[in-house]
Amino acid sequence: MLPPVRLPFRVYHLWVEQRVHSEMPSLQAIAQECAAQGITAQHNRSVTTAYLADQVEDFERRWQALTRHHAQNQQ
């Protein structure tokens, strides 16, 4: 049995899908997509926009680091 994937990594994947198209991904759209995919926070609570807002700085930092790394490898 595989260990559960930590919530921030699952949510980051959805955030990236939005970030590709917008510099300011819609937190509401990401929360709705989490619900549609059955991604929940602790104790099966919905992923909220407040939770997402707390993650945005880390998500953006990770996004910038990975896109910069990818760009350097393409040269």
Score class of each variant (00 low, 15 high):
residue 61 R to W: 03
residue 11 V to Q: 03
residue 72 Q to T: 09
residue 5 V to Y: 07
residue 24 M to I: 09
residue 33 E to L: 02
residue 18 Q to M: 12
residue 38 G to L: 04
residue 1 M to E: 14
residue 56 V to D: 07
residue 4 P to R: 05
residue 53 A to E: 08
residue 75 Q to K: 11
residue 74 Q to T: 12
residue 60 E to W: 01
residue 10 R to Q: 11
residue 9 F to L: 11
residue 8 P to N: 06
residue 47 V to G: 05
residue 73 N to Y: 10
residue 66 L to I: 08
residue 54 D to M: 13
residue 62 R to Q: 08
residue 69 H to P: 00
residue 11 V to F: 03
residue 37 Q to K: 15
residue 16 V to N: 03
residue 32 Q to I: 08
residue 64 Q to H: 12
residue 68 R to I: 03
residue 44 N to I: 04
residue 44 N to A: 07
residue 50 A to R: 15
residue 32 Q to K: 14
residue 56 V to C: 05
residue 26 S to Y: 02
residue 41 A to P: 06
residue 68 R to M: 09
residue 56 V to I: 00
residue 44 N to P: 04
residue 64 Q to P: 03
residue 13 H to A: 15
residue 59 F to R: 02
residue 71 A to H: 10
residue 75 Q to Y: 07
residue 1 M to V: 12
residue 71 A to E: 14
residue 16 V to A: 01
residue 4 P to H: 03
residue 60 E to S: 03
residue 53 A to K: 04
residue 1 M to H: 13
residue 62 R to W: 10
residue 3 P to T: 14
residue 21 H to L: 14
residue 55 Q to K: 09
residue 40 T to H: 11
residue 25 P to T: 04
residue 5 V to I: 14
residue 27 L to E: 02
residue 36 A to P: 02
residue 48 T to R: 04
residue 23 E to R: 13
residue 53 A to S: 13
residue 40 T to Y: 06
residue 24 M to Q: 15
residue 43 H to K: 15
residue 64 Q to F: 08
residue 7 L to F: 04
residue 14 L to E: 00
residue 67 T to K: 06
residue 5 V to T: 14
residue 27 L to H: 00
residue 17 E to S: 06
residue 38 G to K: 02
residue 16 V to R: 10
residue 26 S to D: 14
residue 74 Q to F: 09
residue 19 R to Q: 05
residue 68 R to Q: 14
residue 75 Q to P: 06
residue 34 C to S: 00
residue 23 E to F: 11
residue 34 C to G: 00
residue 60 E to N: 09
residue 33 E to A: 03
